[in-house]
Computed example of a mutant assay.
Amino acid sequence: MIVVKFLRLNEWKAKMPTTIKQALKKWEEATQRKAAESKEIKLIGVSPPIEKMEGPFHLLANLEKFSLSTNMISSITNLQSFKNLKVLSLGRNVLKSLQGIEAAADTLEQLWISYNQIDKLKPLRNLLKLKILYMAHNFVREWREFEHMAELPVLEDLVFIGNPLEEEVSPTGKYTDEVVKRLLYLKKLDGFPVIREVEEEETEEVSGTMDLQEIDRMANNADEDDAEEPGKPPDDDDEYDDEETRAPSDTEAD
């Protein structure tokens, strides 16, 4: 009877989730490093899995990259304890909401949350330093969620493939264009460089500027030639030439 109870107790303990405190202790033993002094910590695929973002985070003052992917975390909490966190990896968990991510807004530059169940992106609008967002295979279905990402001034790399919205729009051939026109600073989408079409008016303006620059260059060359031949007598067309060389400068002044 005692043996049966002991076995059941072990089975019960085995089913209990691992706490982050326990996981950090095992990480220190495996790496022979102190968590409190480390800039990067990986608690990936812990068994039994981590379910809650609770632990002695206040001790991780130096931490810049925290990897918690492939666990069973259901909510984002306690990020206010981190003072230098730049990269947070929470891919392959069971997140349904990004609520709580705003607590890392002062420092977070990269957020990896692919393979979760997230459908709303409003909490992202606070992450003004966010440069990279990997959120493939989530549940985003509406373009209006991009309004929140549009407020991120340095977001340049987005992985969005596998969301219902992407799967719906991609067959039409308009997916990339729709994303790019909403995220004006984006440089990379789903692993590919973003190529933006230059508007016709902008092209004409650039061409006009180049023409003025060319005229200036020619005028400067003419002035240098005159300087090399100080005794050259004036030609009949000198007055007209002077007006031509002065025109670009007057235009630019305006």
Rank of each mutant, 00 (worst) to 15 (best):
S69W: 01
D238R: 12
D241W: 12
K25P: 00
L98P: 02
A14V: 00
K65Q: 09
V169R: 10
P123S: 07
V140S: 02
T251P: 00
E147A: 06
D106G: 02
E29P: 08
R125V: 14
K232R: 15
G191D: 11
E239M: 11
E205Y: 05
D236G: 01
L124R: 03
E145H: 01
L165Y: 08
D157T: 13
L60D: 07
T245H: 14
T77A: 05
I215C: 06
G208D: 07
E228R: 15
A14S: 12
L152D: 08
D211Q: 15
L158S: 04
K15H: 10
L155D: 01
D177K: 15
L130T: 04
A150K: 10
D250T: 09
F139G: 01
L63V: 10
R196I: 11
V198I: 13
T172N: 11
A222H: 07
E11P: 02
D238G: 04
R182C: 03
S97W: 01
L60K: 11
R8E: 13
P248C: 07
S170Q: 15
Q117T: 08
E197W: 04
V140H: 03
D226A: 14
E145G: 03
Q117A: 11
S97M: 05
W112Q: 08
A35N: 02
I50Q: 06
L111V: 02
E29K: 14
T31M: 11
E228L: 15
M135H: 02
E167S: 14
A253M: 08
E151S: 13
V179N: 03
K39P: 00
Q213E: 10
G191V: 09
P230G: 05
K13Y: 09
Q80E: 14
R144I: 04
G173P: 12
Q213W: 08
S249Y: 15
A150W: 02
L108P: 01
L63T: 08
H148M: 03
P48N: 05
E145T: 02
Q117F: 13
E51T: 13
T251C: 11
K83N: 02
P233Y: 11
L9T: 13
K21V: 02
D119Q: 12
S81R: 04
T203I: 08
K26G: 00
G55Q: 06
S89W: 06
R217E: 06
E29W: 08
D235C: 10
G208R: 13
V4N: 10
L152W: 06
T107M: 03
L60V: 10
S75R: 11
K26A: 07
T77N: 03
E40K: 14
K26V: 07
I215W: 05
A103V: 01
V140K: 00
D216I: 14
S207N: 10
R196A: 06
M149F: 00
V154M: 01
E228V: 10
V159K: 03
E151N: 04
F192N: 12
I113D: 02
F192W: 10
L127C: 09
K96Y: 03
